[in-house]
Design a protein around this nucleic acid. Sequence first.
RNA 1: GGGGGCAUAGCUCAGCCGGUUAGAGCGCACGCUUCACAUGCGUGAGGUCACAGGUUCGAGUCCUGUUGCCCCCACCA
Length: 875
Amino acid sequence: MKEMQTTYNPREFEDKIYAEWMEDGAFEAKIDPQKVPFTVMMPPPNITGRLHMGHAMDETLQDIVVRFKRMQGYSVLWMPGTDHASLATEHKIVEKLRDEGISKEDLGREEFLSRAWAWKEQYGGAIVEQLKKLGSSCDWSRLAFTLDDRCSNAVREAFFKLYEKGLIYRGSRIINWCPDCKTALSDEEVSYSEDAGHFWYFRYPVDGSDESVVIATTRPETMLGDTAVAVHPEDGRYAHLVGKTLVLPLVGRKIPVVADAYVDPEFGTGAVKITPAHDPNDFEVGLRNNLPMIRILNDDGTINAEGGKFAGLDRYEARKRIVAEMDSLGLLVKVEAHTHNVGHCHRCNATLEPLVSKQWFVRMAPLAKPAIDAVMKNKTKFTPDRFAKIYYNWLENIRDWCISRQLWWGHRIPVWYCDDCGAQICSKTDPDVCPKCGSSRLHQDEDCLDTWFSSALWPFSTLGWPEETPEYKYFYPTDVLVTGYDIIPFWVMRMMFSGIRYTGKVPFRDVLIHGLVRDEQGRKMSKTLGNGIDPLEIIEKYGADSLRLSLITGVAPGNDTRFTETKVEASRNFINKIWNASRFVLMNAKDETVCTDLAKIKLTPADRWIISRLQTTIREVTLSIQKYDLGIAADKLTAFAWDDFCDWYIELCKPSLYGGDPEKKRATLGVLLFVLKDLLKLLHPFAPFVTEEIYGYLPGTEGHIITADYPRYNSKLAYKQEAKTFEGVIELIKAVRAIKVSVNCPPAKKVHLYLVTEAKRLISVNKSSILRLAGASEIEFAESGAEAGEKTVSQVTEIAQIFIPLGELVNIEEERARLQKELARVTGEIARAESKLSNTNFVAKAPKKLVEDEQAKREKYLEMKEKIERQLMSL
RNA sequence: GGGGGCAUAGCUCAGCCGGUUAGAGCGCACGCUUCACAUGCGUGAGGUCACAGGUUCGAGUCCUGUUGCCCCCACCA
């Protein structure tokens, strides 16, 4: 048998292990009617760049669940893929082109797209490599891309279906426009920030009068598009002006004063300039009052011909000039500093302009309702469930979804216009002739779809929908979607209504929501702050397993977490511990033929204790994973592996391993290997690489741990009573250690133990372990402490009274103080138990078990108290 | 304005349906080259669970209110 290296060095085997899994086809999903399918769709990372810590966490959570289910015998499909990320990618490519001194228009649509595909090959490929480094066990043979044929076909179908039912329409409405990206955006793609700005107060003269109205604005340039001034209908100050006409300065346009309840008389001057084409509220006022809409901006944010002499100026330059001119005309009343919420492009952060534009929209109301109901009826469940409220909140307040983008990289809108008869044709396949007039002079809509339109179909488009493929029939609906809470409005919500609408089924049964990975100071990791940490660098330094563990331990579902290298180190240390414990077991087993069939092994109390602890751990870990409490699962596993297995059981085993009795040694090795094997399996979903590597060294294992059976709780191995009894031995050892420390007895100095106990048998059986672990030379059973002599330190434990003659190390006063302290503690416990038990309501109403426990506790402490008192007296 | 979250040890955080003595990691103190591991071992110190009420036999946990942070959405031109 080959031997494990002395140090844990993940770099030496992680890539090798991954290659083995791939070679074995361990990730490949198979349609197996004998098995229950378990499906997870990976949230497709954008092909815009590298993966960040948030991805690493998202992937880790999925991989844990997926590996767990695979080992449990499900037919698992974890579908990987990448997202073309229309706007984000196009923006990046445009930026790159800009560096080369070219615009996308210079290239033309076709050439631009071929560059985009090249980009996709490069970055999409890099992402796949990163996912592999993390250990993601997804089925690479099915790698999907939102712009591939399958997904594109689904997009066509979905668009057509909605169009057919009138749920998609084209109309001129106020949308969010990014002058940098030169495209419309959906409401969700706008991020607001409090920006410092100004409030300019302008005077608009009343036509044919000396009177004037003062209005306030944060965007002076929009006055070029003003078509009215509005006041509140009941505002006495302005009542006489309603219906009168104002002369719009600089422009000369005559505009009416209208009354509209939208105006807040308390705010500003109580008079509002109305620019229907450039403000959502003004748009509404404009509709109500039949006002003309004058659009004054070009797509790039410069002033258009409507702006007269300001035409061609950038919006901010125009703003300056307008303010200056108003000032020189004496129409600038005052300027105030004013901070207000300004919408920015979610991609490029440019300040957005609301403007009226002809775009495509999805009618949301009919789609939102079933999506709400599905969660209400628990067809889909959020974990943690508080995110259901957030989901409802979004859907209940949703507005129509602007889905058209003035971009090239994406799914082109499947609508054609007839140049002859003007017909608008939506078709699943490219039409040759106009179905209305037969003309062949057709041209396709220039725009692309919002990237989320295709993401919304991900759970089924990747399985071949609308075709009833075998995959679709077997793997859909999916089981769990894992994603961050920031994606709920963009994606979760849209997959829900799309899935329900198109497939008649919710796309997933569970939604596991996680939080954000923040930096050490709790700040969001971002490119601009430069505080992001590359997961690959961490993997390079500590290994993927350590990174994975550090991202889930101590993290509650849905909560944000801070990433610190200290945490990764702690995880690395833990894995190193596992490595060394395994190495220890294997070194001892090297020349032996070991049988791990527990039925054939004569088990010691310590064996039964660790086997019992293993069963408890199996049960707890399994339950925790099923509830998606992965942080808790990892905690339980760590405690079992480190405390119980390494610090106690392995140490307890040493006497029998080194004692020279071959039979005992083989028996012990059998149990060690049995427990280690299950431990590795339990750990495998969390730390797949190291467990697989070690598994390869275990005698008697075939194949890989990735496809091994997940351990099952075995009640026959629970040994509840025996395990509890054995805890007494542990307590005894701990007490001796504590005594030695308290009197500054050097650890190397072996002490002679006098034990007054009823548990002579238990102690005898474990004698060599106790001697070794407690640092003792001899155990002597005594009738009383007197046998230990004068200079004695004592301690009461559940199974024994301990007396240790320590000669000159003993200070009677200190010893008395120590016992007094112990007595106080025990007395406190008795008081607590008694106060509970003397409460008749407690005895009457609390569960019987609890009352009994409390009684037993009182008995136990009373007994201890008596013993301590006796020891005190003997001093 | 609407919705949600957080407040527990020096720090970062766990703590499920209310029920032993409230936990972990890191840090800290003391002591250990014990033949798997100093990426380690042993022993320990450290908490009025933000505050005030309430429900209950019993509250860190449930309810109400208060305070202080944080996030999302809407938004006054």
